[in-house]
């Protein structure tokens, strides 16, 4: 029993995360320092969690979508839209909860739209979601009229910058969402169905799985996740920045899912592993910030580390490592 759980924790993703964190510590000795300040935890490690939360939340939805052999390119734009909607609602005098509800409804509607394009009209996911990726940011810019809509609504600000039991709210929300969605897919048959549809949609339909409904649901969840991330990002800077909110984050979310071991060809997926993938990406970002390297190095360093992680995960490396693993276990027998 203990061996199983140990094996579950000790995998490529967690090793990569720990390695990146250790690397950060080497570059910046104060990296693991955590202080209690103004009723909340404060430190670089907390920053990694806090800043990683939006991408982690996107990755939760994205992982399910990718597992169905799809992809949702619109999440960044949906973030911008949901933030814009929330901000304009509170500026127009609505209460914070109404604004949050409105933003979530927009995310859900976007997800439904994507799901219908993919599941009912059978449009390739990359194209179907590209529509909203392009149009969504435009719509967000229309809502904010091109400028940053700033607000001082306490609900939205709490979601973005508040804390619960010392943990920043974005971290609490991301963690809760991860647990919730993981339970929702693993304690029901939904996870199995998602994998089945991703591996062979035709066979899944023949086996009696309502694949259309499933796909629509999965894209809707992705839309909702994006909306939540959008509210967090807007709350964080107390303003909806339609031009920059969520920009390129769809790519980070896809990367997080891939680092988390979900194949772009659909099938097996793990939501916690994707969240760890998101944290790996953020750990690199934060590491670069505290290390003091000039910004010209950022992208090169990031690309290099990601390449190493993906290479370790590649089937070939798996064979090589597996070979050594077998040899070792053979010796111990």
């Amino acid at each position: 029993m203990t061996r199983i759980s140990f094996g579950r924790i000790l995998n490529t993703q967690t090793i990569a995360l720990v390695s990146v964190l250790l690397l950060n510590w080497i570059l910046f000795p104060g990296f693991f320092k955590i202080e209690w300040q103004d009723g909340r935890l404060f430190g670089s490690l907390i920053d990694v969690l806090n800043r990683g939360a939006p991408v982690a939340i996107l990755a939760i939805g994205m992982t399910a979508v990718i597992a169905t052999k799809g992809v949702d390119l619109s999440v960044g734009a949906v973030m911008a839209m949901s933030g814009a909607v929330a901000a304009t609602l509170v500026v127009a005098g609505y209460s914070g909860p109404v604004a949050v509800g409105g933003a979530l409804a927009v995310g859900l509607a976007c997800g439904l739209w994507n799901g219908i394009l993919v599941a009912v009209l059978d449009i390739q996911p990359i194209i179907a979601t590209l529509v909203l990726m392009v149009a969504g940011r435009g719509i967000a810019q229309l809502i904010t009229e091109g400028s940053i809509v700033t607000f001082s609504d306490p609900t939205l600000i709490f979601i973005g910058t508040g804390s619960f039991l010392g943990m920043p709210m974005p971290v609490v929300i991301a963690f809760a969402l991860m647990v919730l969605v993981t339970l929702a897919v693993r304690k029901t048959a939904i996870g199995l169905f998602i994998e089945a549809v991703g591996i062979n949609r035709s066979a899944a339909t023949l086996a009696g799985i309502r694949s259309r409904l499933l796909l629509i649901s999965v894209y809707s969840v992705s839309g909702l996740c994006a909306a939540i991330a959008g509210i967090i990002v807007a709350g964080d800077i107390r303003g909806a920045d339609a031009n920059n909110a969520g920009l390129w984050l769809e790519l980070d979310a896809i990367l997080a899912a891939v680092i988390g071991g979900t194949s772009l060809l659909g099938g097996r997926f793990s939501i916690p592993m994707s969240v760890i993938g998101a944290l790996i990406i953020q750990a690199m970002n934060t590491g670069i910030l505290v290390s003091g390297y000039p910004p010209e190095f950022n992208l090169v360093v990031k690309a290099g580390i990601i390449t190493v992680i993906l290479m370790i995960q590649s089937p070939l490396a798996g064979q090589v490592l597996g070979f050594f693993g077998r040899k070792k276990s053979g010796a111990s027998r």
């Binding site: 199995l192 994998e195 089945a196 591996i199 062979n200 035709s202 899944a204 023949l206 099938g267 097996r268």
Partner: peptide, 9 residues
């Protein structure tokens, strides 16, 4: 292969 099995499951 096309309509029956889920290879990776």
């Amino acid at each position: 292969k096309a309509d029956g099995i889920f290879g990776d499951l």
